[in-house]
């Protein structure tokens, strides 16, 4: 590992190229999951590599290099996202569960519920799910992606977003509830 770090710091062309080729695939997958736009995903990866090369001397080796790089690429995505203004997002408040005056849940009965396995067989499921996730406002979507898809802990997400763990939990639950509502036609097997 020290040998690789030294080579990268010294700008060894061959080692740098093999390092980039080894890691760029998963980094692009991470940034695309967060950015949901291939062009923005590529921009975030480029920025992340610039940061990695800039900071490689500061990498202490107390965590796996992939973990360190993952944090950098996620941070670059967050920074880029703050600069971008998205449109056509939904109002999360409108997609929360409803209750009657007795505090009882109002939920349309589920006559049938498709499973993730059965939906996976349908060709456009991925596109539909992606579209629905994209409709969530950024401050909810990012928490959902980091916690549920990138599988970071609540504490890690809180540190990255500089908010409390309680805030992450509230946002995550509201994002999941909104996504459930958005995916209902798909899960009920109804046409949109």
């Amino acid at each position: 590992m020290d040998d690789l770090l030294t080579a990268l710091q010294n700008g060894d062309g061959e080692r740098t190229q093999s390092f980039v080729r080894e890691h760029i695939g998963w980094m692009l997958a991470v940034s695309n999951r967060i950015m949901r736009d291939p062009h923005h995903g590529e921009d975030a990866v480029q920025n992340a590599f610039a940061k990695i090369f800039d900071k490689i001397g500061q990498f202490k080796g107390d965590a796996a290099i992939k973990t360190w790089m993952h944090r950098i690429v996620v941070n670059e995505c967050l920074m880029l996202m703050r600069k971008l203004r998205r449109t056509q997002t939904v109002m999360v408040d409108d997609l929360q569960p409803m209750y009657d005056k007795n505090g009882c849940r109002i939920e349309e009965p589920w006559v049938t519920m498709e499973t993730p396995e059965s939906l996976a067989l349908q060709s456009d499921t991925r596109a539909q799910v992606n579209k629905k996730i994209m409709q969530l406002p950024d401050n909810y979507r990012i928490v959902l992606v980091l916690r549920d898809i990138e599988e970071l802990t609540t504490l890690e997400v809180a540190e990255m977003l500089q908010v409390s763990e309680a805030n992450v939990k509230v946002r995550l639950h509201r994002a999941r509830a909104a996504l459930k509502k958005l995916l209902e036609p798909l899960m009920r097997g109804l046409p949109e």
Binding site: W110, M113, N130, R176, L186, M187
Partner: peptide, 15 residues
């Protein structure tokens, strides 16, 4: 159940 299913769907399609 629907909450769980939608969550699994989001995870599995991303993966």
């Amino acid at each position: 159940e629907a909450y769980r299913t939608s969550l699994e769907l989001a995870k599995s399609t991303a993966q």
